[in-house]
């Protein structure tokens, strides 16, 4: 399996993209599979380690939580911007200690934090394993650290490590 398809997710994604752009016909299906396999082998030459998913069951849970949070923080940030002048709002930086070390898990955490409009990933210190995050509406620092640690990082740890 790994000899033919070193990166199954990437191959499926590439084939799907090819079919979505070119139209679903038998010819494109063959071409998409060829391109996906060739691209997988080209990437293996670069020597990146394929992400290994330990527990698939936690993925839908994470997806649901993230989609809900994106909607919620969209509404919150939109209301703050529309309300105008920074009357009662304070924004600030927080430093979050992070246990994740897997690059794929960190990349997904970056996507989550950036997609939710209230938080922005600024910098990850891999030596000290801390994450510098800017929070748009910073009421309670401990609460945000708790959200990142217990809401997202816990599930990512379950999925990847």
């Amino acid at each position: 399996m790994t000899a033919i398809l070193p990166y199954p997710l990437l191959a499926v994604g590439l084939a799907f993209m090819w079919l979505a752009l070119g139209g679903f016909t038998p010819g494109h299906l063959v071409l998409s599979v060829l391109v996906a396999v060739a691209a997988s082998h080209a990437l293996r030459a670069l020597g990146e380690a394929s992400p290994r998913v330990r527990r698939f069951a936690a993925i839908p849970e994470l997806l649901g939580i993230v989609l809900y949070d994106i909607v919620r923080s969209n509404v919150a940030v939109a209301l703050i911007i529309l309300r105008g002048r920074r009357a009662s709002r304070t924004s600030g930086f927080i430093t979050v200690p992070i246990r994740l070390t897997n690059p794929s898990a960190l990349a997904i955490l970056a996507i989550v934090l950036t997609s939710t409009p209230g938080t922005a990933w600024l910098d990850y210190n891999s030596a000290r394993r801390t994450l510098l995050v800017h929070v748009f509406d910073l009421v309670d620092e401990a609460e945000w650290i708790d959200i990142i640690t217990n809401r997202y990082e816990r599930l990512l740890l379950e999925i990847f490590e």
Partner: peptide, 10 residues
């Protein structure tokens, strides 16, 4: 830096 994420998410 938070504002464009409104446009890119929803």
């Amino acid at each position: 830096i938070h504002a464009p994420t409104l446009a890119t998410s929803w």
